[in-house]
């Protein structure tokens, strides 16, 4: 059950997208989001869709995985689309039944919204699927480093993020184990009445918290043993170096963004 969570999941690989500099990937993702929301007509959305499809195919990750990232949000999307459909009153009426009116403007808005959100989720999944969480936080630290001059604790923030991300799978695994152990003792977790399940929650949460604190304590000791003392003067094993392909990828994205903006003005 818990294993189905795909948020922050990373699929190791060696595609061109995997090899891009994570800093560029972050910026490109940001530009991509702007691209999706800057044009309001079908041509703009079409360009965005072509861009998304190209990146998805280049990433070399089974398309099924992208579908998995969209699936949990589908019910919400459909409900909001239906609401849009019914409550947008402007534009020409296409179909009418008693108080219910569907207009072409409403149809447009709901269709555009669905396509946009689906593209957005799929496109940004590329970032987390192809970049390991650790390099991602590294990239965030590097991109935010100018803020250090303003005494903003960039390194500490990034370190906390990497630790949190690093321990998500560990804690999921731990929860799974504790749940199995308590189920083996007859605790009702997946089944049974609501009251029973709530009572049995303690049997999972108490050991989980105990072990989380123990882990935190051990990690702190381990970091101190290795002389960790914050970000000052710390050097890195893996230096991030931008390659020509990174600039090319950024350039292509900017062209697409420009095309979308232009299309938005023209049509």
């Amino acid at each position: 059950m818990l294993k189905d969570i795909t948020i922050g999941q990373y699929f190791p690989g060696n595609s061109i997208i995997h090899r891009l500099d994570p800093r560029f990937k972050l910026v490109i993702t940001l530009l991509f989001i702007i691209m999706l929301f800057s044009g309001g007509n079908a041509v703009c959305l079409g360009i965005g869709a072509v861009y998304t499809a190209a990146v998805l195919l280049l990433s070399g990750i089974p398309l099924k995985m992208y579908w998995k990232s969209v699936k949990p949000l589908l019910p919400f999307l459909i409900i909001t689309a239906c609401l849009n459909l019914m409550f947008v009153r402007s534009g020409e009426v296409l179909w009418e039944w008693k108080a219910l009116k569907i207009t072409d403007a409403g149809l447009n808005i709901s269709l555009f919204m669905i396509i946009r959100i689906v593209l957005l989720i799929m496109g940004s999944s590329v970032l987390t699927y192809t970049t390991s969480p650790i390099t991602l936080t590294d990239a965030i630290e590097r991109l935010l480093s100018p803020l250090k001059k303003l005494k903003f604790p960039v390194h500490e923030l990034a370190m906390m993020m990497s630790i949190a991300l690093r321990f998500i799978p560990t804690l999921i695994e731990e929860t799974d184990k504790i749940m199995s152990a308590q189920k083996a003792r007859g605790a009702e977790i997946d089944s049974g009445s609501f009251g029973q399940r709530a009572k049995n929650l303690a049997a999972i949460l108490v050991p989980l918290f105990v072990s989380a604190f123990r882990r935190a304590d051990e990690l702190a000791t381990a970091m101190e043993c290795r002389c960790y003392h914050g970000g000052k003067g710390r050097t890195r094993l893996r230096q991030m170096k931008a390659a020509p392909r990174d600039y090319i990828a950024l350039f292509i994205t900017i062209i697409f963004l420009a095309a979308v903006i232009a299309a938005g003005r023209m049509f």
């Binding site: 003792r185 605790a187 105990v210």
Partner: peptide, 26 residues
């Protein structure tokens, strides 16, 4: 009955008695 590896991490009750009694109570 299945005892997992490092089963001490599944202990949660306030007293030893109550923790041992968890299974039989269920």
């Amino acid at each position: 009955g299945l005892v997992f590896q490092y089963p001490e991490y599944q202990i949660f009750e306030e007293t030893v008695y109550r923790d041992i009694a968890f299974g039989p109570k269920n």
